[in-house]
């Protein structure tokens, strides 16, 4: 079974965001980059599938040369090999999705796993776009998955509850927290990963569909009225909820 997993490189979620000199991207100095947390669920699911049915797990990343560090962590988790579609600087989701789809057309995966969202731009765009480019079914935000032959059954979160969705392979799945517990690579795996191949591919260039004009740190002036817990003070807060916020 050919299994493709999208891995994106993002700043650690605890990073304090400082805007860079260009005014439209973050200052990367001192920022630690990690595998997008949702992509670990995606990769774990791919690895489990391989363990069950055999096959090859290939990770794919659209990003700069510096992505190799997180790609190595993905290889340490157990991916067989990696593809880096190398591009420096800003690119939009359309570019990422199109190039991932281009590679998928030659690799012909039975299943493509992505994370629910990339926690840099929080776009939730790439999985559905790739599915559409390839004419494949897609089930996004999946928290439970069973595959039996070519039959795929997924549970996923929707507003107000959950849904069970069925489809058939080949398909695109995006992983939500809860799908599995990603493994921690052991030292031998980390060493082995050093020798696994990372294939570099030159992307198809596209006119940018989206241009970033600026970035800002949102300043929300909060009222910041903090009181103690006496009856009077609590009554005062409730009065504000009524008069100011008008929620009561």
């Amino acid at each position: 079974m050919n299994i493709l997993v999208g891995i994106s490189r993002v700043p650690d979620t605890a990073t304090k965001i400082i805007i860079g000199a260009d005014g439209k991207s973050i200052d990367e100095k001192g920022v630690k980059f990690i595998i997008n947390p949702y992509d670990e669920f995606a990769l774990e699911e791919g690895l489990r599938l391989k363990e069950k049915y055999g096959g090859t797990v290939v990770t794919i990343t659209v990003g700069p040369e510096a992505s190799k560090e997180v790609i190595r962590s993905a290889l340490a988790m157990g991916a067989d090999r990696a593809v880096l579609i190398k591009t420096e600087g800003f690119f939009d989701s359309f570019f990422a999705a199109k190039n991932i789809a281009n590679y998928a057309k030659q690799f012909n995966p039975e299943i493509i796993f992505f994370g629910r969202q990339s926690v840099d731009f929080d776009s939730l765009m790439v999985p559905a776009m790739v599915a559409e480019f390839l004419g494949l079914p897609s089930i996004t935000i999946v928290s439970k998955l069973t595959i039996d032959g070519t039959k795929v059954v997924a549970e996923r979160d929707v507003v107000g509850g959950k849904e069970i969705v069925e489809t058939t392979l080949p398909c695109v799945i995006s992983a939500q927290k809860g799908l599995n517990e990603p493994r921690y690579p052991k030292l031998p795996d980390i060493l082995k990963a050093k020798n696994k191949p990372i294939e570099e591919i030159t992307p198809e260039q596209l006119e940018p569909k989206v241009e970033i004009l600026g970035m800002e740190i949102p300043l929300r002036a909060r009222k910041n009225k903090i009181v103690g817990d006496s009856d009077q003070e609590i009554a005062e807060i409730v009065k504000l909820l009524h008069e100011d916020a008008k929620v009561i």
Partner: peptide
């Protein structure tokens, strides 16, 4: 911008070669 909207918008943008910004 919710489960259905995200995936419909993503698919339609890929289908129509259109610019799309989410959320």
């Amino acid at each position: 911008a919710h489960t259905y909207g995200f995936e419909l918008a993503g698919r339609v943008s890929a289908n129509l070669d259109a610019a799309y910004v989410s959320d």
